[in-house]
Design a protein around this nucleic acid. Structure first.
Length: 421
DNA sequence: TCTGGGGTCCTAGGACCC
DNA sequence: TCTGGGGTCCTAGGACCC
């Protein structure tokens, strides 16, 4: 291979990368505070699906819903720092949260608004640092390595250049959105993700390799992105609580308990090693729609209702595919039963589609392969094996109409009997 | 008072082909 | 007749993340 082309990023005379992780502070809640500034400082929780919009009283004051008034299956999406002080966090069921903070204010989620501010903050960052990896609505990675001046010392501070750039980025985000963010900057994504959390909210943390032992090793293993509830509990069972402890553990032991690939990853992560690049573009792998019911539904007794929901999910999925310009070959369904047991079934077709009727029929066939004697709490439909449709955003006349031959080659035969549900 | 909705990636077994 | 690997695709489930 041509030597000039094969410089390895880990090669010793290549300088360390400078990777930033930027995380918006309590993003959804902060966007809501822009709209309702009088709530600043109060415990506020965002979440739930039922209508609990604030009402404006005749005298102009606003009346907000309280957590204690909520009945249903929602969870907290975000809470303000004042609410977190009361022990309510994202992911927590609203009914459970109401026990801890009954007087906290409850607002409904407004994704259109969050998406708007998401675009604003990302554009504000891109003006100063264009190499951005999207990690969802409220966070990004940024590769700062090649930005002029970033490696220059300022006064006696060898990291002065990066810090100055980071402050500029924070200011630009603040100017564009009125919102604060926290930034971590280190040689890689793994460490930066951890670092951005160390000084929240409105924080800035710059770490080098030399800081790993002092700043990273004292942290709980769960702070590592990729160690979740299961792995965390398993590590605790082995007496491994901190990252430093994990780093000191014989990799052979980790491999023995977690398998080769995850075991090695645990060891590397604990030592702060991560060569993943900042990825500026990616294509979706799947698109899905799902819904949890307010009460568990029974396949026979609630057949009509379930059938309507199932059809609506398929319609929404087809519309999403058409709007985003994708076709897919693998249709999948997801069912969650009372007791939270989850089952999936999928079917791969020869010809990709974005057509509602084809999706509905294939999903119906998948449904026939599931035992429906237990009551259901969730139903979902997914399309995988995606490719771009021929004409994105502009489906051929009236959607993707297919010839009869194509259809029969593609979808399972239409059911003779009534569809399940 | 348990546990939303939208995703990604990994594993593991079986089918099928060379 | 029996015995092989390797590679790819498909399916189901599960861990994890925002």
């Amino acid at each position: 291979m041509a030597a000039a082309q094969t410089e390895h990023p880990d090669s010793s005379n290549v300088p360390e990368r400078l990777i930033a992780h930027l995380d918006m502070d309590a993003f959804y809640a902060s966007v809501e505070l822009l709209r309702y500034p009088e709530l600043k400082g109060q415990p506020v929780v965002i979440g739930g699906r039922r209508a609990h919009e604030p009402r404006t009283l005749p005298d102009g004051r606003r009346k907000y819903a309280r957590l204690r008034d909520y009945i249903g299956r929602g969870v907290i999406t975000t809470s303000t720092y004042a609410a977190r002080d009361l022990g309510v966090f994202s992911g927590m069921g609203l009914m459970k949260a109401a026990l801890r903070a009954p007087d906290a204010i409850l607002l409904p989620t407004d994704f259109d608004s969050y998406r708007h501010y998401s675009r604003l903050f990302k554009a504000a960052v891109a003006e100063l640092a264009p190499v951005i990896e999207d990690r969802g609505i409220d966070e990004i990675y940024i590769d700062l390595s090649d930005i002029p001046g970033v490696r220059e010392a300022v006064g006696h501070d060898p990291l002065g250049g990066v810090k100055a750039l980071a402050r500029e980025i924070k200011n630009n985000v603040q100017r564009a959105t009125g919102l604060t963010c926290s930034i971590g900057i280190t040689p890689n994504k793994l460490l930066s993700k951890i670092a951005s959390e160390l000084d929240k909210p409105d924080g800035l943390t710059v770490l080098t390799r030399d800081d790993i032992a002092g700043r990273i090793w004292p942290l709980a293993v769960r702070k590592i992105n990729g160690i979740g509830p299961k792995a965390g509990a398993k590590l605790a069972g082995l007496g491994i609580e901190t990252v430093g402890h994990l780093a000191a553990t014989d990799p052979a032991l980790l491999i023995q308990h977690f398998g080769r690939s995850y075991g090695i990853w645990l060891h590397e992560s604990a030592h702060g090693r991560d060569a993943r690049p900042v990825v500026t573009h990616s294509e979706p792998v799947s698109i899905s729609r799902e819904t949890t019911f307010e009460r568990d539904l029974h396949a026979q007794r609630d057949r009509a209702e379930l059938s309507d929901i199932f059809t609506r999910l398929c319609e929404q999925l087809a519309a999403d595919l058409q709007r985003k310009g994708y076709v897919g070959r693998t249709i999948g369904i997801k069912l969650r039963f009372e007791g939270f047991r989850t089952v999936t079934r999928d079917h791969t077709m020869d010809i990709p589609t974005q057509d509602f009727a084809t999706i509905r029929r294939a999903a119906g066939e998948c449904l026939k392969r599931v035992d429906l004697s237990q009551r259901l709490r969730l139903l979902g439909v997914r399309m995988g094996s995606l490719s771009r449709s021929a004409t994105p955003d502009q489906p051929l006349h009236g959607g993707t109409r297919k010839t009869r031959a194509e259809r029969s080659a593609n979808a399972p035969p239409a059911p003779e009997n009534l569809p399940l549900f």
